[in-house]
Design a protein around this nucleic acid. Structure first.
Length: 374
DNA sequence: CTAGGGTTAG
């Protein structure tokens, strides 16, 4: 056996190697970003009878994942495991988090099962499961993601709102609304309550299917749910997603209704809400609509940000609204905003072009008239 | 000097 050729050493010798080796390996992997040198050192020590410990495993896998060498990291991990170098629970979760950076959920899933193979009592953390669910959804495989949900339940986890929201959104993205609804209804069975972001992402799927009536009903519930949400950032995310998809689906009446009536009240920071309405409208080429939101905002006593003025002015110049753009420029200057030189350049060019267009029109007209006369 | 270490849904 090969094993018997390896010299056996005392514990003292192991510890001596550990002192010199482990720190060096770790430094090579992190500080110097030279995993290959670390691997050479580790192989050298191994030939002298050194048994790698979970610290070495952690350093090496970290270094390889950090260098986007996920294939090798995966192979090395298996080698470490088969030589019975098995890390503790926390380290296992850290390693999984590293493999999640590969954005290859199948690989991460394999890593998890390899770890469990050598450490049957290991249960990946809720966050790792949720991230894995998200990654299967982002490669349009919510069915596989769904199996991860059952997997985590079987291992004794209780899924949370993030788990379900991710999966509901995953089914919505591929247009499987009936699965999304089923999952949404299943949540209370696990003591999980949908929050405003869950509703918002479900609405996105519903509106994409052009089920406007159902979308409106859910929007009503969404604004109710926002009132009980304690995490402001969840409400902001829900609001931003809602406005984005209303704009994308061309439901501008709803967008202006929100700007006028602010049904989310103070559950979403007002400046953020107005700013996002303006942003989303500009993004879908509706700068005139965005300037209408500026008007509504000011009517309510809020001041648009310099960023809003900049993007609307740019948008209006592109969409043939340079006179309104000029008006807004003056308005912004009136608030003491120092608009960028680029904004001025864009506006001046648009104004010149508009005048040229008039000239062009004029000459075209006279050309036509001349033709009639002649 | 006893070692190192990730955080989710838009």
């Amino acid at each position: 056996m090969f094993q018997s050729n390896v010299p056996r050493h005392s514990l003292k010798f192991q510890e001596a190697l550990r002192h010199t080796g482990t720190k060096k390996i770790h430094d090579l992997c992190t500080k110097h970003r030279n995993v290959d040198e670390a691997l050479r050192l580790l192989d050298h020590l191994r030939l002298r009878g050194y048994l790698p410990d979970p610290l070495n495993l952690s350093s090496i896998i970290h270094g390889l994942c950090d260098a986007n060498r996920f294939n090798e990291a995966h192979q090395r991990l298996i080698i470490f495991l088969t030589s019975l170098c098995v890390p503790d629970e926390r380290t296992c979760n850290v390693l999984i988090a590293r493999f999640l950076h590969s954005k290859d959920p199948f690989r991460t899933f394999n890593v998890i099962h390899r770890l469990i193979e050598f450490k049957p009592e290991f249960v990946p953390s809720l966050i790792n499961y949720n991230r894995l669910i998200d990654q299967f959804c982002s490669v349009s495989l919510p069915n596989v993601a769904h199996r991860m949900l059952y997997d985590m339940i079987n291992r004794g986890h209780c899924p949370n709102t993030v788990s379900y929201t991710t999966l509901v959104s995953g089914y919505c993205k591929i247009g499987e609304l009936s699965d999304a609804y089923k999952l949404f209804d299943e949540m209370p069975e696990w003591g999980v309550v949908p929050n405003s972001l869950t509703y918002s992402l479900l609405i996105r799927g519903v509106l994409r299917k052009r089920d406007i009536e159902r979308g409106r009903e859910l929007m009503h519930v969404l604004f109710q749910v926002m009132r009980y949400e304690e995490d402001q950032s969840v409400n902001s995310a829900a609001f931003a997603n809602l406005v984005d998809c209303l704009c994308r689906e061309g439901l501008f009446n709803e967008v202006f209704m929100i700007a006028e009536e602010m049904p989310q009240g103070n559950r979403v920071n007002e400046d953020f809400a107005f700013g996002h309405l303006i942003d989303s409208l500009c993004k879908v080429g509706r700068s005139h609509g965005a300037s209408r939101v500026v008007y509504i905002m000011r009517k309510k006593g809020f001041t648009p940000s310099i960023v809003s003025y900049n993007s609307i002015i740019h948008g209006l110049c592109k969409e043939g609204g340079c006179m309104r753009a000029y008006q807004l420029l003056e308005e912004g200057v009136g608030f003491g905003y120092l608009l960028s030189e680029y904004t001025y350049k864009v506006l001046v060019e648009a104004l010149c072009q508009a005048m040229d267009l008039d000239k062009a029109r004029g000459s075209f007209k006279s050309y036509v008239e001349q033709g009639r006369d002649g």
